[in-house]
């Protein structure tokens, strides 16, 4: 029961690829653009091009495709549900019937729509995992802080949010280790975590969670003191060791993504007219 082995935070895979070297801000922006594109595209030509583009990015990022596809596993159930519900309960009246079993009807239109929606789900997961695979949590927080910085005037606590994320990331392994220790201690006193129904198991967790919370608060107290002793006084006066700096390659990447996304949204009929 080694919790720390099963939980990986962020799924960062260090590589020396052009995608890794991009500024986290441009990667976040690119992900946003692509997300919009995924929802705007509505025919096979667009999805085909999008798939090609994503494959290109995956190749450039040097992330093995298998890793990315494994990232789909948690959404597999959701994906199946979406497909089944959209095929059989689409509510589309009429259309070409492909399959009928009593009251259950699958029309051609419903199947198409289900495939589109399923594809969107897959594409979204792939795009976001590409971001987390190629960007370390530290860079990601830095990027988010910098993106939010202009909104500070509107009361968005950009620095504080980033600091909270950093501390959370820093303490997840520590608290997991502690959970394990407490669970073992309670097991030594006869606690059962792996038997009984859900209610019983949930109740068995109470003697784990209470000491965990108490200790988390104590840690928070000590950390706050240590931070103060190191002259921490919030985001003001603070500089960073690694200031994010946009490079020409970031502009290239963004322009490419924008242009590509525009091309994906060109409807199939327009392609037909253009290529004639």
């Amino acid at each position: 029961m080694e919790l720390t082995r099963y939980v990986t935070i962020g799924q960062y895979i260090p590589r020396e690829s052009p995608v890794h070297r991009l500024d986290p801000r441009s990667k976040i922006a690119a992900v946003t653009v692509l997300t919009v594109a995924v929802f705007v595209v509505r025919d096979f030509s667009g999805y085909g091009l999008l798939t090609l583009f994503l494959l290109g990015v995956v190749l450039a990022s040097q992330i093995p495709l298998g890793y990315l596809l494994r990232g789909l596993r948690p959404v597999l159930f959701l994906l199946l549900m979406t497909l089944v519900l959209n095929v059989f309960f689409s509510g589309i009246q009429g259309g070409t019937v492909l399959f009928q079993l009593g009251p259950v009807v699958a029309t051609r239109e419903a199947v198409l729509r289900a495939v589109f929606i399923g594809y969107r789900l897959v594409a979204l997961v792939l795009v976001t995992s590409l971001l987390t695979f190629t960007t370390s949590p530290v860079q990601l927080t830095d990027g988010i802080e910098r993106i939010l910085r202009p909104f500070r005037r509107l009361g968005v606590p950009a620095h504080e949010l980033a600091m909270m994320m950093t501390i959370a990331l820093r303490f997840i392994p520590t608290l997991l280790e502690e959970t394990e220790k407490i669970m073992k201690a309670q097991m030594a006193r006869g606690a059962e975590f792996e038997h009984g129904n859900i209610l019983r198991r949930a109740r068995a967790l109470v003697p784990v969670l209470v000491p965990l919370f108490v200790s988390a608060f104590r840690r928070a107290d000590e950390l706050a003191l240590a931070m103060e002793a190191r002259c921490y006084r919030g985001g003001e006066h603070r500089t960073r060791m690694k200031e994010l700096r946009l490079a020409p390659r970031d502009a290239v990447a963004l322009v490419l993504t924008l242009a590509a996304s525009f091309v994906f949204t060109i409807p199939y009929t327009t392609w037909q007219a253009l290529l004639r």
Binding site: T166, R219, E222, L225, A226, A229
Partner: peptide, 14 residues
């Protein structure tokens, strides 16, 4: 500068 007792509770970054 001050170094505290519990090394886990004074390191801030990952």
């Amino acid at each position: 500068g001050m170094v505290f007792q519990n090394p886990d509770n004074q390191l801030v970054a990952t």
